[in-house]
Design a protein around this nucleic acid. Structure first.
Lengths: 346, 346
DNA sequence: CATATTTATGGAAGCGCTTCCAAAACAATA
DNA sequence: TATTGTTTTGGAAGCGCTTCCATAAATATG
């Protein structure tokens, strides 16, 4: 039978209030009684009951992470860092996964009203006005990570700028027929990356040919940021034959992996025939030599957690909307590496 | 201000006990009052307070997953499936990560005594007698996944057999000088895979040369199942020069990735100079053509969750220790694929 | 040494639920 | 209609903690 605070109190010959004071090292307690209580609590192997504590204190020291678990290796890295941060601050992590599009709201509602957590981190998930307001009204601290909403705190990537840097790199290597393989335009990052792509082409006086822009369509998993979408898109580009692009900016690494697979299958050499540059720098792409835009997941996690904790402690109230820059990581698939590495031969 | 059960009761003109009955659809309640209560609860946007519920019910409908978050892509796949299963059964997931070796026990204690969860899944983490007994004594249901302890339920991989299949495949391809790159022997899977490796060589009358067995040493992250350990080990094997093995069984895919990187750097062709076969079949290795032993993560997750839930519901009490078989997935690095694919040229 | 201050302590209420138990309401039987 | 049986219902206790408040002990002040 687990011990309660009453057991400790009885054993120590004091009242429960005193035990509570000792355990939470509050002031107004005699040093020696405190030591005695702590010792006895240790001997009895007593640990406070988490739920009871939460109920009495009106906060749980738990935070919820809502992730689209149809799984994207990018925010897996994010999740890892988030977890580290939270552990540092002694918060427990609830993991909610929205596996189907339609249960997103159900989960938001639970996070909002079940009161199992003091705050929430929402990863890579769009949120509409209705729910943004709900969060506000319920006074539930929330940080959007890798997404944006005007009413809420958010930490995202400067997608437009990232896309620009990527495309500009391609242009600087002499490529002129640059295509874009993108996620679904229903997602915020996809829209921004498209914008960056277009702007860059324009500012360099390159035509933006519609057949070079392949947005994932339909209500796909991961908003089209998945391997097979990349594969399909690359097939389309390859099918253009002599009108084929000489370089592709792929809006996510997973898609880029799919694109590489398609290239290999059709005997398209990378980067000789088509150069490829991705986005995210997920863990694995270094093994296939993919040039890509690295998202600073660690900083994102740090910022997100710090900010959320501040909100929870009511240390702040001003809005917080940060954009971090992605960084170009040059490997082999963009063709500017001397080694003459052929990514398509994997 | 969030609504309570009292608000609903007042609004509906009934007592709180009746509201509770309606909400948890218990028997002995008039159908029409139940409907009325449910309607009003809906109108008020009432959601029961999770902690209060847990405290009163003495169980939380939450389960803890303890994972070594120094991150291994293999049990990330596992975690994903676990999460799916749990969601299906309407359980919430607490994610505890043990990031340093020394906090494993702290976390076990918290899981055990804070009573925030009804049961625990412990992934890829060794557990000693002391804690095995603690779990038993505290009557905390627990399933070890990808590990084993005689006193506890466990679901693991038939590592010895898996290693056998891998090495036997290599032998069947005509390789005779077969090396092993392994994790740290402090881990259970590493020991078993070594055993399988040795047995197979013996049963085929091949000598088991000590310099061909590279176990990760020291207190490494992930028990030596990491990329750089694989890289280092492969370097050692390559340094053997004319005594070099003609094939390597690598005890995990992440290490295999490191091994491939080393091979590439030293211009060793895979599989012509050295064939490689991994273990796990993590998501990414298909892109580098790695032949490997696939772990059935989905079945593992299903079994683990079903079993844990049964334990929680006290539907069972007999011990449950399952070994699942890994399955050989042939790609290019073992050299039996006609396409003559060169994995080292990635 | 009496009184005023400060410090330490324990009892009790309350967090929001579930559930036991006794009472009320209703239906069925004689 | 009186009596028994069956549903429904609400009050109250209890889950294990924190915290308010009143009181007791210890210390300081005159």
């Amino acid at each position: 039978m687990p011990k309660t605070i009453y057991d400790v109190a009885r054993q120590a010959g004091v009242g429960i209030a005193t035990v509570s004071r000792a355990l939470n090292n509050q002031p107004n307690i005699n040093k020696s009684t405190k030591e005695k209580i702590l010792r006895i609590a240790g001997e009895l192997n007593y640990t406070p009951h988490g739920l009871a504590r939460g109920l009495a204190r009106k906060h749980t020291h738990q935070i919820a992470a809502v992730v689209p678990f149809f799984f994207n290796y990018f925010f897996l890295g994010l999740l890892k860092n988030l977890q580290y941060q939270l552990t540092d601050h002694n918060y427990d992590l609830f993991l909610y996964s929205v596996d189907r599009i339609d249960n997103k709201e159900t989960i938001f509602d639970r996070v909002l009203f079940e009161r199992k957590c003091d705050g929430a981190l929402i990863l890579s998930l769009g949120i509409d006005d209705l729910y943004a307001k709900k969060f506000l009204r319920a006074k539930m601290p929330v940080i959007l990570v890798d997404n944006y909403h005007p009413l809420l705190d958010s930490i995202s990537i400067a997608n437009i700028r990232g896309a620009k840097v990527a495309v500009e790199h391609l242009i600087s290597q002499g490529y002129k027929k640059i295509a874009l393989i993108n996620g679904s335009l229903s997602s915020y990052p996809a829209r921004s990356r498209l914008e960056g792509y277009k702007e860059t082409l324009q500012s360099h006086n390159l035509v933006c040919r519609p057949e070079y822009v392949v947005n994932a369509t339909g209500d796909m998993a991961q908003d089209g940021f998945n391997e097979s979408a990349g594969y399909d898109a690359m097939q389309n580009l390859i099918a253009l034959n002599d009108e084929r692009p000489d370089a592709v900016f792929v809006a996510s690494d997973v898609q880029a992996l799919g694109a590489l697979r398609a290239a290999k299958e059709y005997n398209i050499r990378i980067p000789e025939d088509i150069a490829v540059i991705g986005f995210d720098d997920i863990d694995f792409v270094k093994y296939v030599g993919l040039t890509t835009m690295r998202q600073p997941v660690q900083s994102m996690a740090e910022l997100a957690v710090n900010r959320l904790l501040q909100r929870i402690d009511k240390k702040t109230s001003d809005k917080f909307q940060v954009e971090l820059n992605a960084e170009l990581v040059i490997r082999e698939t963009c063709g500017c590496n001397k080694e003459g590495f052929h990514a398509n031969q994997i």
